[in-house]
Write a protein that binds this DNA or RNA. Sequence first.
DNA 1: TGCGTTTTGTTT
DNA 2: GATTAAACAAAACGCA
Length: 589
Amino acid sequence: MSAAPGALLAVVRGPAGLGLADGERAWAVPAAGPAAAARVLADLERERSPRWVWWSAREVLGPLAGHGGRDDRPPHLARAWDVAAVHRLVAGGGDDGPAAARAVACGLAPSAAPSPGQLDLGGDGGVPDGDGDDPVRPDGHLRPEWVDGSWADTPGRAARWAAAALGTAGLQRERLVATAGEHAVVTAWSESAAAVLAVELEASGVPFDVAAARRAVEAVVGPLPEDEAGAARSRAARDAPLQRLLGPGPTGAPVDLRSPAQVLDALARAGLDLPDTRSWRLERLAEEPGAPAVLRSLVAWRQAERLAVAHGPRWLAEHVAGGRLRAAWSASDGGAGRMTASAGVHSIPRELRDAVRAEPGHLLVRADLGQVEPRVLAVVSGDPALARDAAEDDLYAPVAARLRVARDVAKVAVLAAMYGQTSGAAGATMAAMERSYPRAVAMLVDAARRGAAGEDVRTAGGRLVRVPAVEEVPVEAGPAALERYRARLAGRGRFARNAVVQGSAAELFKAWAATVRARLAADGSGAVVLCLHDELLLHVREEDADAVAAGVVADLGTSAARWCRAVGGPPVRFTADVAVVDRWSRAKG
DNA sequence: TGCGTTTTGTTT
DNA sequence: GATTAAACAAAACGCA
């Protein structure tokens, strides 16, 4: 659902309750195409600092993102109330369209929400689609004929659609405060800003040198093919040496290296009995003295195959254009509301980071948070000892001292506590963790208990995290089925335990990212081009790079302090490592 | 043939 | 004896 060029763009200013001094006003802006819409937005921005209210940033800004200059974005655009983003916060994900968001905001069942094309049965049975219609039915739901994007047909409809967004935002706010608490309003703001950022990330992409990427892949894989036939030839050439080492399969045909089952059989014939062919297992075996040459060859083949398939010519053609790697971005996805991206942007292998390069006259600023998760744990649990330890640059040093173990052991112990690991050396240090950080551990244990019991949990900022359903097992089920059931419950416990930390960390990160975004947009020094859970990659003008690097650290100070206050935790110190580089690969980390 | 599951691998 | 979280993505496998 997006406004086509030449259609209308609905822009709304919100009421005081949404963070404004101004009264309610709904705007419907006629826009002859994205460029005109961008000018209108820029004009409106000059009026004093509104908080925009929209059904979703994607709908309103998507059509004009990328217009008006790559690095030229209205700074206050992200001061918004994004109904879809707030709905995901309130409802814990799922369908975030206007109909579902409206239903939940009204306390109605989202399943009863109308969908486009559906007969309108729930209302007054009035006139179906007149210009004078209200998008909202008397029962609170949206009218189905409004949900299909036709709000953009006339100025009158756009204005009413905008007003409905405003009304929904008000209801949402009440609901949010009632279910998650007053502090969740602050989260709603930063999540809305992240939604704007997601649209911008999608439009801008990551500066990417295709030729450098090809070279990096070729260094491992060999010359890249030009077409399908060439691809088949180079695959065969890659396979042949290893196939000769493995010998023929039972049918006499060469082993299909892409079939785990066939590779497993072939290894068994070579006298290697393995439970699976995971590369870490193969690597460990290959490193042993006297290991057969096949193993080393197989490990190398796997590495090349992976790179060729995941980041070969097809991937480059599909996702890189005009010197930018582009992906679809979600501002809050998954169990805990992290930002996610398609095209494998969050798992670009190290070899390829050399291809992420600043454009002429620009530099990259890479900033990553140090030890975010334990610091976030200190905030959300309010554990005084952990909060004190966070004062150090290296949080694990004082932890090691308290636990009376080596730093590495301490680090594993903290991570294991957050992930719910109970076996091995990490399990053994749990008792010491509990003694040293009773509040932190108690909070984690409580989240795990609630998750295992099927109760939903909330992040520090108030996001609802739904634990996955686990199918009940009848009492008379066999021991294997009962064991699987128990394992699922435990898995759900670990999920919930992790989600409260990971999800809260995502909220802190987004608050920081939004602050940095506003800084860059305000002075036109550049743009955020990549968000990687605890890492920001900025593309900035060369002459501004050092100032931006300093600014990013300052922004962390202010946004982290604000976040700690908002969620009612102690003022925990957060740190960031910042590097100014021309290529991503040159920033260590 | 098509669709869902399993295996594998990369990142945080 | 096991049981560290999340994500995206491709190809093989298994079943109807």
